[in-house]
Write a protein that binds this DNA or RNA. Structure first.
Length: 565
RNA sequence: GCGCUUGUGGCUCAAUUGGAUAGAGCAUCAGACUUCGGAUCUGAGGGUUAGAGGUUCGAGUCCUCUCAGGCGUACCA
């Protein structure tokens, strides 16, 4: 249900009838219940243009506004706000439609586009660490969201599998003379050991350098070793994705190495476009207004990550046909992407109408506001963090006796992982955020557990209710009215979240919805004695729609729900 | 130095993109149970939105300056 749009249409209609020849401002949600459900603030803005008092304009709009359909009541307030109350019968009917519909009456986009979402992007030489968490789950949420709304989403996991370090790593792997499963169990250790060997032994170092050249020139033996290394390393990532309930598979991997053969043509194309310049022996593109150029080829002929990114942009726009390309990458790389996007457009690698965006996010901090590290200052492995979340969740489960061991295990997984993801997604992605176990595993406030609790409570009602859910929703009081309007807002929220690529708009909405439901639940009994059948059914239907909305919202965030908690 | 970015109650975060009296949670204090799941709900106190100017009907949001933090700044990714 595109609620806002429906109201906007009514306003537009009123504008026409009132012969106001302007495009009205969009309505917004009322800031307070006393102000109705929605408010129109456009009268003030028109005051100067039309040379009239805003309240006069507002009155004119209201006179011409249809009060027999969506809108039940309006009033002029303050300098010229129009407060709008929606028609309870209309709201109820819309909720009924949503409740009956698998997609909660949310239509797929009429004009879907192809969107590339580039996220996660782990480095194969190392294990995934906490720094990869945000990219992985924010990107996954965006991909889920756009898919749900009807776009054709192409997930791209741009893994780092190319570069000089791999010569050293595969040379060391070969020397270990085993299938790699043991020594590669801990990639950090393996890297350290390889580096130690590299520094201590000149012959080994020579061999490592030789292997770099060999991989890049397609030597079969070295490529096989490299492939083996990548397979094992990628396997570690997949373990993390599995635990995180993230929808990334091997099919989504389009590694740096994939673009290797395109790099020379990136340079020659830039040259033929006339944007290439030599500076200090390196091949550069100088952008207007920037002092430092984008270096695309080093003095020694080697390529850089800007080169690979340009190749990837070209591929995504032209071969994959993307109209929107979203990079979910740390905010610190903002400068890099700004430049690369500019070069890509200037060189004609990407058509003008393709939207390129850097979905930047802040750094994860510890309680003291410092970058998140282990006690001895090392990076925290993501897998360790997730395992710890499950352990902590298990400890937090009450009444463990009433569950089997498997059930506790399954429950702890969903709760623990869900808590980590929710806590991250609930925060405006651009700001740094403070990682706090106690807060994220709390049942109070805007947490995944509060949401899970609300959901489980509704499921509990339906376990007790052994009838057939029929009848229809009747708005009985102010609280039910607010709850119903909130439920109908879901699509607007999702659209906005998709537009801005900001998952926290979804979490904020879900929290408001759950809070409102809890109040409704306390105040309006369903299964208790003395509740009339009609009222009971209406309330059950509202509860059911709330549960479905929470479930769908969490599903987009990649968080599972449980029926019992 | 230059560039980007952030600054909102004691703490952690919101604020529908310029709208009305800046909202939540935690913490503090005070209430509500023969619990449709109290892991809940109701209420109270707590704010010069870092500071100073400006733009306009209207500013946490836009502009300028100042202060304080973070990050980036030519051949790593």
């Amino acid at each position: 249900m595109k609620l806002k749009q429906s109201i906007n249409l009514a306003i537009q209609d009123a504008f026409k009838k009132a012969e106001i020849n302007e495009t009205p401002l969009a309505v917004s949600e009322a800031t307070k219940p006393e102000f109705g459900d929605y408010q129109f603030n456009g009268a003030m803005a028109l005051s100067k243009k039309l040379g009239k008092n805003p309240r006069e304009i507002a009155a004119n709009i209201i006179e011409n506004l249809d009060h027999s359909g969506i809108i039940a009541k309006t009033e002029i307030a303050g300098p010229g706000f129009i407060n709008i109350w929606l028609n309870p019968l209309w709201i109820a009917a819309q909720c009924d439609v949503a409740e009956q519909d698998e997609r909660l009456n949310i239509q797929r986009k009429e004009n879907p586009i192809k969107v590339v979402v580039d996220y996660s992007g782990p480095n194969m030489a190392k294990q995934m660490h906490v720094g990869h968490l945000r990219s992985t789950i924010i990107g996954d949420t965006l991909a889920n969201l756009l898919t749900f709304l009807g776009d054709e989403v192409i997930r791209q996991n741009h893994i780092g599998d190319w570069g000089t370090q791999f010569g050293m790593l595969i040379a060391y792997l070969e020397e270990q003379d085993e299938d790699g499963s043991v020594s590669l169990k801990d990639l950090e250790q393996f890297y350290k050991d390889a580096k130690g060997r590299f520094d201590a032994n000149a012959d080994f170092a020579d061999k490592a350098r030789e292997y770099v050249v060999k991989i890049q020139s397609g030597d079969t033996h070295c490529l096989n070793l490299w492939q083996k290394f990548i397979d094992i390393s990628l396997g570690h990532c997949e373990e993390v994705y599995e635990k995180l309930n993230v929808n990334l598979t091997r099919d989504d991997v389009r590694a740096e190495s994939f673009y290797n053969d395109d790099l020379a043509s990136v340079i020659s194309d830039l040259d033929s476009k006339g944007v290439l310049q030599e500076s200090d022996g390196a091949q550069c593109v100088f952008l207007e207004g920037d002092e430092i150029p984008v270096i695309v080829q080093k003095g020694d002929g080697g390529y850089l990550y800007a080169t690979t990114d340009l190749a990837a942009l070209r591929f995504r726009a032209n071969v994959l046909g993307a109209k929107r390309i979203s990079y979910v990458v740390d905010a610190r790389q903002g400068g890099h992407f700004k430049q690369v996007f500019k070069v890509a457009k200037e060189a004609g690698f990407v058509p003008e109408d393709v939207k390129l965006e850097h979905i930047a996010f802040g750094t994860m901090m510890d309680k003291g506001g410092k970058p998140f590290k282990t006690r001895d200052g090392g990076t925290v492995k993501l897998i360790d963090l997730l395992d710890e979340a499950v352990v902590k969740a298990k400890a937090a489960i009450k009444d463990k006796e009433s569950y089997s061991e498997e059930e506790v295990e399954a429950l702890a997984k969903i709760i623990g992982i869900g808590a980590v993801k929710y806590a991250d997604l609930a925060i405006n992605r651009e700001s740094n955020y403070i990682f706090n176990w106690d807060k994220m595993l709390s049942f109070d406030g805007n947490t995944s557990l509060y949401m899970q609790y609300a959901y489980a409570r509704i499921q509990s009602i339906f376990r007790r209710f052994d009838g057939e859910l029929r009848g229809k929703i009747i708005i009985g009081d102010a609280l039910e009215h607010r709850l119903a309007v909130m439920l109908l807002r879901f699509e607007d929220v999702l659209e906005r979240a998709a537009e801005d690529a900001s998952p926290n708009q979804i979490t904020t909405y879900l929290y408001e919805l759950a809070t409102l439901f809890m109040r409704f639940y306390e105040q309006n009994p369903m299964l208790k004695e003395g509740v009339e059948e009609e009222t009971k059914m209406s309330r059950l239907l509202l509860a059911d729609l709330t549960a479905k909305t929470i479930k769908q919202g969490l599903d987009i965030l990649g968080i599972q729900v449980v029926n019992k908690l």
